[in-house]
Amino acid sequence: MTFKLIINGKTLKGETTTEAVDAATAEKVLKQYANDNGIDGEWTYDDATKTFTVTE
C-alpha cells in the first residue's frame, strides 16, 4: 500500500510517499524521514486517504 506524508513545516513544506504493509510501518518510516529532515510537530492520520500530516 502507498502512504502519503504531507509536511507543513516552518522551513520545509511538501509531500512524500512510502510503500508499506500497514499504517504502523508507514508511520515509523515517515516519522524517521521527518526526523532526519528536522521536522517536529503534531501528527495526524486519515485512514480513508492513507495520508499522514505533520504540522510544525
Rank of each mutant, 00 (worst) to 15 (best):
D22A: 03
D47M: 10
T18D: 02
T53Q: 07
N37Y: 12
I39F: 07
Y45K: 01
I7V: 08
T11Y: 14
N35K: 11
K13M: 14
K50W: 07
V29D: 07
A26L: 02
Y33E: 02
F52E: 00
Y33L: 06
L12K: 07
D47E: 14
E15Y: 07
I39V: 13
A48R: 13
T11V: 15
T51H: 03
Y45F: 08
T55L: 06
G14A: 11
E15T: 09
Y45T: 01
N37R: 12
E56D: 09
D22M: 03
T25F: 09
I6T: 05
A34E: 01
K13L: 10
L12N: 13
V54L: 12
M1D: 08
V21P: 11
Q32D: 11
T53W: 08
N37E: 11
K10W: 12
A34V: 07
T11Q: 10
E42R: 08
A34G: 03
F3E: 00
Q32A: 13
T49Y: 06
E42D: 14
N37D: 03
L30N: 01
T2Y: 10
L5R: 00
T11E: 15
D46K: 03
D40A: 08
T25W: 07
T49L: 10
T55K: 07
D46Q: 04
L30R: 00
Y45Q: 01
I39M: 05
E56P: 07
G14V: 10
V54K: 01
V54A: 03
V29F: 12
T25A: 12
D22H: 03
G9C: 07
Y33T: 03
T49C: 04
Q32E: 13
T49S: 12
K4D: 02
A20I: 03
N35P: 01
G14D: 12
K4A: 05
A26W: 01
K4P: 01
I7L: 09
E56T: 09
T44G: 07
V21S: 14
E56W: 09
N37G: 05
E42M: 08
Y33G: 02
T51D: 01
I7C: 04
T44A: 08
G9Q: 06
K13A: 10
G38C: 07
G9E: 03
D46M: 04
W43T: 01
T18L: 10
N37M: 14
T16V: 13
T18C: 06
G9I: 14
L30T: 01
F3C: 01
G38H: 11
W43V: 02
I6Y: 07
T17M: 09
W43A: 00
T16L: 11
A20F: 04
M1V: 13
V54C: 05
I39R: 02
T55G: 05
T25V: 10
A20K: 03
K10L: 15
T16H: 14
G41D: 02
V29G: 04
E27Y: 09
W43G: 00
T16P: 03
D47F: 09
N8P: 03
T16Y: 15
D36H: 09
